[in-house]
């Protein structure tokens, strides 16, 4: 073979002369900063759904209504005492606590740690889980000690002609 091809039309033997591959993949300071800003943008956008979902929960859209269910008679539950019942299904154990004359609270009493039944400790005025000593605030159901990190699902109650009824559940998923 002659070396003709190497001379016409160029003297150089680079037939890809229009492709400059030098530094093609170099990431300079500016490019790096652009990437970082882009990543911040991705974080911002992906935060939006969480905010929306949280706002939805705050507005009580996660609450569920169930047909009302009689728990007990007012007369048979002295102030400071608690009674167990099942709501909304027959296997969803729950607890009703009478805090004062007219104040009742009720929670799904499966512990939010590993679902042991939470009971009402009257002399210490708190709800206690026997399995790993989780404790819950009786007013709100929020966890106050031990392994549980989520509040107990609250059951909405209503008092009607001398009886206490369960009417709905806050954020109950099953």
């Amino acid at each position: 073979m002659s070396d003709k091809n190497n001379k016409i039309p160029f003297t150089e033997d680079n037939y890809t002369h229009n492709i400059n591959r030098n530094n093609e993949r170099k990431l300079d300071r500016r490019g790096f900063m652009k990437t970082l800003v882009g990543a911040a943008g991705v974080f911002a956008v992906s935060s939006l759904p969480w905010g929306v979902l949280a706002a939805k929960e705050l507005n009580g859209l996660g609450d569920k209504k169930y047909p009302k269910h009689k728990i007990t008679d007012v007369n048979s539950l002295p102030i400071g005492d608690a009674v167990d019942f099942a709501f909304p299904g027959e296997h969803d154990s729950a607890i009703l606590i009478r805090l004062s004359e007219n104040k009742y609270v009720a929670y799904q009493n499966a512990c939010t740690h590993l679902r042991c039944p939470v009971f009402w400790k009257k002399d210490e005025q708190e709800m206690l889980c026997p399995c790993h000593h989780g404790k819950f605030d009786v007013e709100t159901g929020a966890p106050t000690a031990g392994p549980p990190r989520r509040p107990l699902p609250e059951i909405h109650v209503k008092v009607e002609n001398g009886a206490v009824y369960a009417v709905g559940v806050k954020r109950y998923e099953a």
Partner: peptide, 18 residues
């Protein structure tokens, strides 16, 4: 952990950081 107010605060901060 169902602390939705804190969730919203964190989301807003994340958006502002952009």
């Amino acid at each position: 952990y169902e602390n939705y107010t804190n969730t919203i605060i964190a989301a807003v901060i994340n958006v502002i950081l952009f």
